[in-house]
């Protein structure tokens, strides 16, 4: 029993499709620890069905507005949608202002759409450590599409490529955006590029320029060729095209068995990361490891032992069978 309620009871209500229970379980996952692992153990067999789509790009590009429009179209096709909107936690106060719902208002009237705002919390980039787990939960809750919105700054946008089957990069015609995107590595990860705010006059030119840039990229034979779509979330234009291209990308993956391949690659990376995290924590928290460090650092400071010498001594303490 924690202050969120009894986990077993929550899981049972979750199984009955209760939204409040699903929401509370996401909070348990966010809090981490043993209870989070218990929840993940329980729901994991129900995952794997959802198409995970990342939306990334600079702040203000219109990601939330597009997610809102795309969700409308996907709902009309009968899909059940989960949305994860990640915004940065302030490194100074630990607080966060999560405003993506402002652009998704009408969705909160649709019970088949589940929107969850996450703060990035302890993670360095713009993505929450708990993004995969939240996507798992929505997946197991029966959502067949999970849209993940993250701010593309620094290196965090590269992480979205490890979480999503299809990555949509949202850009705007504002000057320098294209260059910024290249610098930030967005050009490497996009399967679909949206030039949003097509209601601005520079949009057509900017989209053409983007096409040019993308054409310079080497694409191996038979691989997906990234596409550019002009859209305006405000005027609701180009959204059909966007959805069509996204669906095409998914079909491309499925027809070549790449969806399953990608699923395995993503899971492998998750397991590897989870092992590393766990091992690191155990090392950091181990009193005997700490004792060696404390004792031997003096020798390193004095130049009597090299850093690697200390590592070897530590390795003798740690048995990995």
């Amino acid at each position: 029993m924690n202050r969120r309620g009894d986990i077993g009871a929550l899981l049972e209500r979750f199984g009955r499709g209760e939204v409040a229970a699903a929401a509370r379980l996401i909070s348990v996952l966010e809090d981490g620890g043993d209870e989070a692992e218990r929840v993940l153990d329980a729901i994991f067999p129900g995952t794997g069905g959802a198409w995970r789509i990342g939306f990334t790009g600079p702040p203000g590009a219109g990601k939330s507005s597009l997610v809102h429009r795309v969700t409308g179209r996907m709902r009309a096709r009968g899909h059940r949608i989960g949305i994860i909107a990640v915004d940065p936690t302030s490194p100074f106060t630990g607080g966060a202002l999560l405003g993506d719902r402002i652009r998704m208002q009408s969705l909160s009237a649709d019970p088949e759409v589940f929107v969850r705002s996450l703060a990035s919390r302890g993670s360095l980039g713009g993505i929450s450590n708990c993004t995969d787990e939240t996507a798992d939960l929505l997946d197991a809750f029966g959502k067949d599409i999970v849209l993940i919105e993250t701010v593309g700054v620094g290196q965090s946008e590269l992480e979205i490529a490890e979480k999503a089957h299809t990555v949509v990069v949202v850009l705007v015609p504002e000057s320098g955006d294209g260059i910024q995107a290249m610098k930030a590595g967005l050009m490497e990860i996009g399967d679909v590029f949206v030039m949003n705010k097509a209601d601005h006059e520079q949009a057509v030119g900017a989209a053409a320029e983007l096409e040019e840039t993308l054409r310079l990229k080497d694409v191996p034979d038979g691989a997906w060729v990234p596409r550019v779509v002009l859209a305006s979330a405000r005027e609701d234009t180009g959204i059909e095209d966007l959805v069509a291209v996204m669906v095409e990308h998914r079909r491309h993956l499925e027809e070549r068995g790449l969806m399953e391949k990608m699923r395995r690659r993503i899971l492998r990376a998750r397991v590897r990361n989870a092992i590393m995290d766990r091992m690191e924590r155990r090392l950091r928290e181990s009193p005997s490891v700490r004792a060696v460090l404390e004792r031997r650092m003096e020798a390193v400071y004095r130049g009597e032992a090299s850093p690697y010498r200390v590592v070897r001594e530590l390795e003798e303490l740690v048995t990995i069978r």
């Binding site: 106060t93 607080g95 999560l98 402002i102 208002q105 909160s108 705002s117």
Partner: peptide, 13 residues
């Protein structure tokens, strides 16, 4: 203000 006080604030508009 709540954000500055370290809370996670969802603003809905």
């Amino acid at each position: 203000a709540l954000k500055d006080a370290g809370m996670e604030v969802i603003y809905t508009g």
